[in-house]
Simulated scan of single mutants.
Amino acid sequence: MRAVRLTAWGREPALSEVERPVPRDAEVLVRVEAAGLCHSDIHVIDGPEGALPYRPPFTLGHEVSGHVAALGPDADGPAVGERVVVYGPWGCGSCARCVAGQDNYCDRRRGLNWHGVGLGRDGGMAEYVLVPAGRHLVPIGDLPAHQAAPLSDAGLTSYHAVNGVRHALRDGTTAAVIGVGGLGHLAVQILRATTTSRVVAVDIREEALTLAQRSGAHAGTLMRTDTARALRARTGGVGVDAVLDFVGNTATLELAADVLRPGGEVAVVGSGGGQLTVRKPGFLPPGFRLSLPFWGTRPELAEVIALARSGALHVETEQFPLSAAPEAFDRLRQGRVAGRAVLLPA
Results as ranks from 00 to 15, higher is better:
2 R>D: 11
6 L>G: 13
7 T>I: 04
10 G>D: 00
10 G>Y: 00
11 R>I: 09
14 A>H: 15
17 E>V: 06
18 V>K: 08
22 V>R: 07
24 R>T: 10
27 E>C: 04
32 V>S: 06
32 V>D: 05
37 L>M: 12
38 C>W: 00
45 I>V: 01
51 A>Q: 05
55 R>I: 11
61 G>K: 03
65 S>M: 10
67 H>I: 14
69 A>Q: 03
70 A>M: 13
75 A>Q: 05
76 D>F: 12
82 E>W: 05
91 G>Y: 02
94 S>D: 12
95 C>N: 00
98 C>G: 03
104 N>Y: 09
107 D>T: 12
113 N>H: 15
113 N>E: 15
113 N>Y: 15
115 H>V: 08
117 V>I: 15
119 L>T: 14
121 R>Q: 05
123 G>A: 04
125 M>W: 09
129 V>M: 03
130 L>Y: 05
131 V>H: 10
138 V>E: 02
138 V>M: 05
138 V>F: 04
139 P>C: 09
139 P>L: 06
141 G>T: 02
142 D>F: 05
145 A>Y: 10
147 Q>H: 03
149 A>Q: 14
151 L>F: 08
151 L>N: 11
154 A>D: 02
161 A>V: 11
166 R>T: 14
170 R>H: 07
176 A>N: 12
177 V>W: 06
180 V>Y: 01
181 G>T: 05
183 L>A: 03
186 L>S: 07
190 I>C: 11
191 L>P: 07
193 A>H: 08
195 T>K: 01
199 V>Q: 01
200 V>W: 03
204 I>H: 08
205 R>H: 12
205 R>L: 15
206 E>Q: 07
206 E>I: 04
207 E>Y: 10
216 G>F: 07
220 G>D: 14
222 L>W: 06
224 R>G: 12
227 T>V: 04
228 A>Y: 09
228 A>N: 08
240 V>L: 02
243 V>H: 05
246 F>A: 08
246 F>M: 15
252 T>C: 05
254 E>S: 10
260 L>P: 08
264 G>L: 13
264 G>N: 05
269 V>T: 07
272 G>F: 07
273 G>Y: 02
274 G>H: 02
274 G>D: 01
276 L>H: 13
289 R>Y: 06
289 R>M: 08
291 S>F: 14
293 P>D: 04
298 R>S: 03
300 E>P: 13
304 V>G: 00
305 I>E: 04
309 R>I: 08
310 S>V: 14
310 S>E: 12
311 G>Q: 06
314 H>M: 03
315 V>F: 10
316 E>P: 14
317 T>A: 12
318 E>M: 09
319 Q>Y: 14
321 P>I: 04
326 P>G: 09
327 E>W: 03
329 F>M: 13
330 D>V: 07
332 L>M: 12
334 Q>M: 05
339 G>I: 10
342 V>M: 07
